[in-house]
Simulated assay, not measured.
Amino acid sequence: MDDIRLDKYLWAVRIFKTRSDAAEAVRTNRVTVNGAWAKPSREVKTGDRITVRKQQVTYSYEVVDPVSSRLPAKNVPLYCRDITPQEELDKLNVPRETVFVFRDRGTGRPTKKERRELDGLMEEVFYEGED
């Protein structure tokens, strides 16, 4: 067995939890093989480089050996090598911006005016980065 379907390979080496998740990611252009968009049925060969976009991080993998059945997690390095650059992995550790508004204990729910102020503050924080 020299080559295997892309969606099945991504599932077998535990990049995706289900094969349907893998196929959906490939169909929605979150997976490339050797720099080109692929279909779920594309055959994966030894030496192919696969990039997978999950949330804000782009993971990179190199196919060591095609495999069609799901593997135990400890055997994955025998079939797939993670070559993700450290800059991408550092994106996982970026502190998430949170807004914390201090309210005195026992003051109850915010009034309409306080709620509008909170909503305005949230809009400033979340829409500031999109410009």
Rank of each mutant, 00 (worst) to 15 (best):
W37T: 06
A38Y: 05
F16C: 00
V57T: 12
S60E: 14
V99T: 15
V57E: 00
V63M: 07
R5M: 08
V63Y: 04
Y59K: 04
A25M: 08
A23M: 05
F16V: 02
D48F: 03
A22S: 09
K17D: 04
V26C: 05
W37H: 11
T18E: 05
E62W: 04
R53L: 13
R14H: 06
S20I: 00
Y61Q: 07
A25V: 00
K74P: 00
D90T: 05
Q55T: 06
T51W: 01
L89R: 13
V33L: 13
F100Q: 14
N29A: 11
R105M: 11
A23L: 03
L118F: 15
E87W: 10
G47N: 10
V67H: 01
P77C: 10
Y61L: 05
T28Q: 13
R30N: 12
K45G: 07
L10H: 02
T111Y: 06
K39Y: 06
S68L: 08
V94C: 03
E117K: 15
A73H: 07
S69Q: 14
S60G: 05
V52L: 06
E88D: 04
V64Q: 07
P95I: 13
V76P: 02
R116Q: 13
V26T: 07
L6F: 01
V94S: 07
V26S: 00
K54P: 02
K17V: 06
K39Q: 11
P85V: 11
D82M: 09
V31K: 01
D119S: 08
P110I: 02
G108K: 12
V67M: 03
E117W: 08
V101Q: 14
L6D: 01
R96Y: 07
R109E: 12
T58R: 06
K112Q: 15
A12I: 05
L10W: 04
T28R: 10
L118M: 15
E114Y: 10
T32L: 07
K39A: 03
Y79C: 09
W37D: 01
P66T: 00
V26N: 01
I4N: 03
V31Q: 03
D90R: 14
V33K: 04
K74R: 14
G47Y: 08
F102S: 15
R49D: 01
S60W: 03
G106K: 06
E62K: 10
T107N: 14
I83E: 15
E97C: 05
K54Y: 02
V57A: 04
T111V: 06
D3A: 10
A25Y: 04
Q55K: 10
S68T: 08
F100H: 15
D21H: 11
G47P: 04
T32R: 15
Q55S: 07
A22E: 02
R116W: 08
S41C: 05
A73D: 14
I4M: 11
Q86S: 14
E97Y: 12
L89P: 03
V13H: 03
D2P: 04
A23Y: 03
N75V: 08
E87G: 00
T107Y: 10
R19N: 01
R109H: 13
E43R: 11
V13G: 02
D90E: 15
S41W: 08
E43M: 11
P85M: 12
C80E: 02
